[in-house]
Design a protein around this nucleic acid. Sequence first.
DNA 1: CGGGGCCTTGAACGTCGTCAAGCGATGTGG
DNA 2: CCACATCGCTTGACGACGTTCAAGGCCCCG
Lengths: 235, 235
Amino acid sequence: MFTRNFLQTHRTPRLSEAEAASLEAAVIRTAEFRAKQIIVRQQVPLSQCTLLLEGFIERFKDTPDGRRQILALHVPGDFVDLHSYPLKRLEHSVAALTPVKVALFPHAAIRGLTDQSGTLTELLWRSTLIDAAINREWIVSIGARSAAVRLAHLFCEMYVRLERIGMTDGKVFAFPLTQIDLADATGLTPVHANRMLRQLREQGLVEFRAGVATILDWDALRSFAEFDPGYLFFD
Amino acid sequence: MFTRNFLQTHRTPRLSEAEAASLEAAVIRTAEFRAKQIIVRQQVPLSQCTLLLEGFIERFKDTPDGRRQILALHVPGDFVDLHSYPLKRLEHSVAALTPVKVALFPHAAIRGLTDQSGTLTELLWRSTLIDAAINREWIVSIGARSAAVRLAHLFCEMYVRLERIGMTDGKVFAFPLTQIDLADATGLTPVHANRMLRQLREQGLVEFRAGVATILDWDALRSFAEFDPGYLFFD
DNA sequence: CGGGGCCTTGAACGTCGTCAAGCGATGTGG
DNA sequence: CCACATCGCTTGACGACGTTCAAGGCCCCG
């Protein structure tokens, strides 16, 4: 069941059994990547899409002056480059944060799915647009929230997304990023990210150590972060 | 020809004449809005999509503490809320920056188009994903570029997008935002945006006055802004 | 044992934000 | 027709949030 987590997080529109079976059957093969390995390089023409089965993936872009901006984080059940189907190439790169296992869907198979069913089309399209909604929420975070709030918001988002696929253990979840990665995701320097993490910990909101996050006070964290999960479209 | 500007900016995949005619025929009516009028309110269920014909539109989100973040700017030929088709509602709001004229496509008509042609599906889907690519470039701008570079990048983007639909006059183009809007789009304060605009003008890169932008030195501006138009997918 | 990530902390600096005041243009009502 | 309010733009002074530079610690791995 390659598509179990995907269907778990994308319940609207609901597929018929036949449609779900077609989606599952569109996988030609699986693949594995090591941590830090680049999975998709920007601007390279693509002919298949990647569904993340196990592990964590990042999408990022490097700027000419050597800075690096993480654009999105992906968890199991996320299509990491479904948008390559209409776009044919990506304008950013995709890399594994941990060892990962993925399922591959040839573009031709996606085309087959969209020809077959308007509902399947809508579901796949929708999933790319939820990614876009997350991108926009990150714009709000980076553009309009302070460093500490930004980090808190990211912890909220990841907690909720991981909780949905059963990858949390109470208020504890694996979040295998370095502080440098967190800084690259939030537009901060590693030094300042470190200081803000300490502050969040001392405020009793969230603790982050060795790639593991522990929510200390969910209500307080959520309110501190101005977190409203509507943008994740968990309908 | 409601869809002329849209087809002008979205040349891939190419539609057959019949497909282009179907797209054009999917419009049920046009509508007009006054400047500053809200066109789509966040979280309200939608049943139609809006194609911008004339004028400028913004997408934005307000934060609890009263800040406002502009998420995207739209020019004629852009679908401003095509993503409401798979999502059914938006997590942000849409407003007119100037008096605007739009064409409306019922969701049911979009469904008809996607049922009819995989190529039409791909084109519409693609256009929503180009919006997403622009969102991601804004993440890079806000997260990793300095205030002056950020503004310069925005001028580059708008110049290229407007040039494509014939809305530039040499190196001059109407860009009907206030300095406050520019600040809200770039995550700056109006005061600082003002200072950076002065700097860009004094450096001989770009001038912005009364809603009109003038590129003073395109090559210098482009290089200062680290601008690479690849993310706009002008294929 | 040495080297390289990653984390942590301090000190100094600078970009950007805040507060405040004044200007010009526009518009509205007395 | 003028008084006055509003809005957007501009500039100065000051302060803060976040960056930069630097050093040291820990841990893992070769």
